[in-house]
């Protein structure tokens, strides 16, 4: 067996990656500024809030699904993802009480959005709602070409591999992050979060009546303003700043009819958070 420096060799990658550790700064810098292809550029990735929408039951869910079906009929293609909500909060509370590690909490939290996705699939079945599990994502073109509405969990598949944060044991990557990263990977047309508030406020408007609405803000401004609470997971704001594709996200109030269609048709309703 022919070896080079004691190792079995693959010809042809000498110049770039071979013989280097992947930690090499020189190597990483040589790969900067590469452009990636877009996987599914015409598809929206939409998240249905867990606590904000699903936990409200039929009163909130049904009109939103009607609006989404209307969008689908108008030729707007999307993947529908779900949040967890109050049951996720309950199981995190239980996990925290037992001093379970972050990876275990992420595992526990993953079950709830799957329940919510299955509920939506049952409701949307007659309009082509179909479960698209992460293992089946390579079949997304098939589902979409068949006129289906793929429905999936918003949670990223990190589970036991979820990292602890510098502060806090609750997993930092939950359904907002999973939905954002899915959109970024697909090079999607846009990422839309459907919640029960008009968008981002300076604080949680449900607890602080003085919270002010923010229609438009950059990621940098949002981090610098130091606000304690916000309507999307903090890691999304971090990821956005170094992402290649999804440079803005939109948050709309789905309990007010018309907002979802307006956003999907390109209107800046709700709050738009942009990378720069």
């Amino acid at each position: 067996m022919q070896k080079k420096d004691g190792k079995i060799w693959i010809a042809g990658i000498e110049s770039e990656l071979h013989g280097q550790t992947l930690s090499s700064r020189e190597l990483r810098e040589s790969l900067a500024n590469r452009k990636s292809i877009s996987v599914l550029p015409d598809i929206w990735v939409i998240k249905m809030g867990g606590q904000s929408i699903m936990d409200r039951g039929a009163a909130a869910v049904e009109p939103i699904l009607e609006e989404l079906v209307e969008a689908k009929k108008a030729g707007i293609n999307f993947i529908l993802c779900t949040g967890g909500g109050t049951r996720a909060r309950h199981v995190y509370s239980l996990g925290l009480d037992l001093d379970l590690p972050t990876g275990m909490l992420a595992r526990l939290g993953a079950s709830i959005p799957v329940q919510n996705a299955r509920m939506l699939q049952l409701l949307l079945a007659k309009h082509g709602g179909i479960m698209a599990y992460p293992e089946e994502f390579e079949k997304l073109p098939f589902f979409l070409n068949a006129g289906c509405i793929p429905i999936t969990t918003g949670m990223p598949p990190n589970e036991f591999w979820e990292k602890s944060s510098s502060q806090g044991i609750i997993p930092a990557n939950r359904t907002d992050a999973g939905v954002y990263l899915l959109g970024e990977f697909l090079g999607a047309k846009g990422v839309l979060y459907i919640k029960d508030e008009d968008g981002l406020y300076t604080d949680d408007p449900k607890k602080n009546p003085d919270a002010k609405f923010i229609p438009k803000i950059t990621a940098k401004e949002l981090i610098e303003n130091g606000q304690d609470d916000m309507i999307v997971e903090r890691v999304v704001i971090e990821y956005m700043q170094r992402a290649e594709n999804i440079k803005k996200i939109q948050i709309v109030n789905g309990t007010k009819r018309g907002n979802i269609l307006a956003a999907l048709n390109g209107s800046d309703v709700g709050t738009v958070i942009s990378a720069e």
């Binding site: 909060r89 609750i170 939950r174 609470d229 916000m230």
Partner: peptide, 10 residues
């Protein structure tokens, strides 16, 4: 639960 109504972002 202890986390009821929380955004988990605070």
């Amino acid at each position: 639960s202890g986390l009821m109504r929380e955004s988990l972002v605070s």
